[in-house]
Design a protein around this nucleic acid. Sequence first.
DNA 1: TAATTCTTGTGAAGCATTTCACATGAGCGG
DNA 2: CCGCTCATGTGAAATGCTTCACAAGAATTA
Lengths: 214, 214
Amino acid sequence: MKKRISESTIHRLSLYYRALSLLEKENVVTVSSKELAKREKLTPAQVRKDLSFFGSFGTRGLGYQVAELRSRMSHILGINRDWRVALIGIGNIGSALVSYKEFARQGFHIVKLFDNDQRKIGSNHKGIVVSDIKDLEKELKEDNIEIVIVAVPATVAQYIVDDVVAAGVKAILNFAPINLRVPPEVCLRNENMSMELEYLSFAVVNNHTPKKVI
Amino acid sequence: MKKRISESTIHRLSLYYRALSLLEKENVVTVSSKELAKREKLTPAQVRKDLSFFGSFGTRGLGYQVAELRSRMSHILGINRDWRVALIGIGNIGSALVSYKEFARQGFHIVKLFDNDQRKIGSNHKGIVVSDIKDLEKELKEDNIEIVIVAVPATVAQYIVDDVVAAGVKAILNFAPINLRVPPEVCLRNENMSMELEYLSFAVVNNHTPKKVI
DNA sequence: TAATTCTTGTGAAGCATTTCACATGAGCGG
DNA sequence: CCGCTCATGTGAAATGCTTCACAAGAATTA
């Protein structure tokens, strides 16, 4: 399996995983691509094609075993395990994310907090003591952090990310509204909430309706 | 101009707008598609093609006037004006968003807050008194709200959104991790932070590097 | 004014993604 | 056990998006 998987496919895997989790809770045993597609507003062919990149998980004439497919999806997405996540920047957004239960529910555990504000360093948020940003690289290494969430002002984000990369972290979720440079082996995702509002304002002004909802 | 504009193009318009704002601050007067592309890690052809959907804004041999193009972009995106935004759900995420200055900076003003918790109703957040969710439809109409941010638990999100739609709102930014049903004329965007972390965990587990960073 | 340089705007080509459509296999009822 | 129904998995077609490549316009210099 050396074919490049598209970003859209990966996002849809998350959707499938979520739908399957719900189905399992509803005690549904098998599900067809048709039903799965309906639940996530996709086409059955799309569902089957996405899954086919990773193997043949279904049974002709019957569909997919909900529990089994969910487990497969979690393996493919890498969420069949726990992740140690560090959060940098304990401002508005940062504080909210520390308390955001959805992350832990999916196995993403925020276990380190960093800030540069002396008043925040040493303080306790949800049982985690805030570390000094000065020790970022050292502590990320020591604690085997694999994913970092950056929630600092745009002006300092690049410096922070340089340190994060130096610490060997390969996955970064960035909330600062700025285009960050990272080496090609690092996966960077941007969460730019203003851009989403701008999308909406574009839609309203131009009477535009998106084909697919992300 | 009746061609369907792709989601990617709209997102890139936001990037152009941001880059142009910075250039203007740096007192740069003109910019080429090449330079603009470099700043946002795109190709010059992509920049020109995107702009060409909306008109011819450049001068051959010279490039684009920074100030003028920025103004054009803001008109196209609909951010040359202020927007009245309501925020529903004053939990972790909701509270953070009320204080998030980036929104107001782009002209998105949160002017209404709603919650169903009696302890929160009537309380004051950044100068805004929290309204009872029961009055949602009425107050959204009265206050001419055009954009709504939904930051409530997934279990109640659909009911809330039904009311929002009934109030005639045409643009919704949803933070609840659930697939919401809205009529076709309503533009719904989902901000699913867990999905972004899942993307990262997929990338780490599969040694996958995305072609383009969103 | 003519030659040169620069960079836009845009059809056409090249890729990528989505959808179609059907062969194939599994279950089930008679 | 045969025929019928159902639903997968997948090449091929269709659609959509990005990149190429170049004609053409604008400034500048001689």
